[in-house]
């Protein structure tokens, strides 16, 4: 490709206060500042968010699907991580 294209960025939006940023898509930008402005225009054009993250796609390290089994399955049987594992009397407030 003789043409110089801009690197890919992943975009994360916090839909409203109290929620995590969620991945919404990607865009191309030459630099971080441009990526942030473009993300605002593209992914929050209708005020869908209160905060934005942009990150170069090549900076993301991901688990591969092949690793899925060892990577994700153990948590399934570590039931103590799940709140329902613990019996709490109904009359204890705010738990």
């Amino acid at each position: 490709m003789s043409d110089m294209s801009w690197p890919l960025y992943e975009v994360f939006v916090r839909p409203r206060r109290g929620l995590n940023h969620v991945h919404v898509g990607s865009l191309h930008a030459a630099d971080d500042r441009m990526a942030l402005l473009a993300a605002r225009d593209l992914y929050t054009r209708r005020n869908e968010g209160v905060s934005l993250w942009v990150v170069r796609s090549n900076a993301i390290t991901a688990s591969t699907p092949d690793e899925k089994d060892p990577f994700f399955e153990p948590s399934g049987d570590k039931v103590y991580r799940h709140p329902t594992f613990y019996d709490i009397p109904e009359d204890v407030p705010h738990i």
Binding site: D3, W6, A30
Partner: peptide, 15 residues
């Protein structure tokens, strides 16, 4: 637009 896109890449590299 090629020269514009190219300029943005060059600027980012300099920065």
């Amino acid at each position: 637009g090629a020269w514009v896109r190219e300029a943005a890449v060059a600027y980012a590299a300099k920065q």
